[in-house]
Computed example of a mutant assay.
Amino acid sequence: MSSTTNLVEQSKKLCAYAAVDNNLKPNHKIIGIGSGSTVVYVAERIGQLSNKSDFVCIPTGFQSKQLIIDNKLQLGGLEENPIIDIAFDGADEIDSDLNAIKGGGACLLQEKLVADSAKEFIIVADDRKNTGILGKGWNKGIPIEVIPNAYNKIINELNSIGGNAKVRSGLPAKAGPAITDNGNFIVDCDFGQVPASQVDELNKKIKLMVGVVETGFFVKMAQKAYIGNADGTVTTLSV
C-alpha cells in the first residue's frame, strides 16, 4: 500500500471515528449505517463500544448489512424501525450547502430512504469529496434509478434538459446494465457543474419524469459532514 493510499485511509478512519464519537448519544438506539469505504470505519467504531448491544442498526444495502454483521452489531430493518435516531453515510461529492451526490455504488434509493428516515443525517468522507460544487470533482454523472422499461424515455428527457445520459453498464462483472438491489437500472447523467443554488430545482425536474424511481441528489438532507484531510486533521461542516 502506497504512502498516499495510507494517508487517504487514515483520513477516512479519523473522520468516521470523530463523527461517531461526537454525535452518538446515550438516547440513540436506532442507527442508520450507510455504504462506502469511509463508512467501514463508522461500523468499526460503533462495534468497539461497550454498549453496542443497545443499538439496532439499519443498513442501506448489501455492503452495509455485511458491515453490521461483521462488527457484531444488531441488524434491523426500516419496516420495524421507520424512525431512525441518527444515520451515517458517505458521499461521492459534497457542495458548500452540504448537498451531496450519492449512488456511485448503486445503493442510492436505500441510502436516501435511511437518510430521510433519520432525525439526524451525518456524512463522512475524505477531502477529495469536498469540492464545494457538485459535478466539479465527480464527473461520472448524477446516478438516477429508473424502472427498466423506461430507461430510453428517461435518457431522452434528461438529454433534453441539458444532460448527457447513459445507462450504467454492469461490466466486467455482468453483461448488460447494472441492476440495483431493487431490480432497477441506473442512468448516469452528466450536467457539468451544478451550483448549490440550482441543485434543488434540477433534482425536482428529474424526479417529475415518469419512470424515475429516485435521484442521487441528496438535497439539504445532511446536518453535518466530517471531512478527513490528508494532513491528519478533521474538518467539521454544518448547516
Rank of each mutant, 00 (worst) to 15 (best):
E9P: 00
Q10N: 13
Q10F: 13
S11G: 14
K12C: 07
K13R: 14
K13A: 09
L14R: 06
L14Y: 11
L14D: 08
A16K: 05
A16N: 05
Y17M: 10
Y17F: 15
A18V: 11
A18W: 12
A18Q: 14
V20E: 00
D21M: 11
D21V: 10
N22Y: 07
N23P: 09
N23I: 03
L24K: 00
K25I: 02
N27E: 15
N27T: 07
H28I: 01
I30W: 00
I30G: 00
I30L: 00
I31N: 00
G32Y: 01
I33F: 01
G34H: 11
G34F: 04
G36N: 14
G36D: 15
S37K: 13
S37T: 15
T38K: 04
V39A: 07
V40E: 09
Y41R: 07
Y41S: 03
Y41V: 03
V42D: 01
A43V: 05
R45H: 08
R45K: 13
R45S: 00
G47N: 06
G47M: 02
Q48K: 14
S50A: 15
S50I: 07
S50D: 15
N51M: 10
S53D: 11
F55S: 04
F55A: 03
C57W: 05
C57G: 04
I58K: 01
P59I: 13
T60Y: 02
T60Q: 06
T60H: 06
F62D: 09
S64L: 09
S64E: 03
S64H: 08
K65R: 11
Q66K: 12
L67C: 01
L67H: 06
I68A: 02
I69D: 05
I69T: 12
D70W: 07
N71W: 05
N71P: 10
L73Q: 03
Q74C: 13
L75M: 08
L75R: 01
L75T: 01
G76W: 08
G76T: 12
G76Q: 10
G76Y: 09
L78P: 05
L78Q: 07
E79W: 07
E79P: 00
E80P: 00
N81H: 12
N81E: 14
P82R: 10
P82D: 09
I83Y: 02
I83K: 10
I86H: 00
A87K: 01
F88W: 01
D89W: 09
D89Y: 09
D89C: 06
G90A: 09
A91G: 10
D92F: 14
E93K: 01
I94W: 00
D95R: 14
D95F: 12
S96W: 02
S96L: 10
S96E: 15
L98F: 05
L98P: 08
N99W: 06
A100G: 07
A100C: 12
I101R: 12
K102A: 08
K102D: 14
G103N: 12
G104S: 13
G105V: 09
C107P: 01
C107D: 03
L108Q: 11
L108D: 04
L108Y: 05
E111L: 01
E111S: 03
S117Q: 04
K119V: 15
E120D: 15
I122D: 04
I122A: 08
I123N: 05
I123F: 15
V124H: 04
V124G: 01
A125M: 12
A125K: 02
D127R: 04
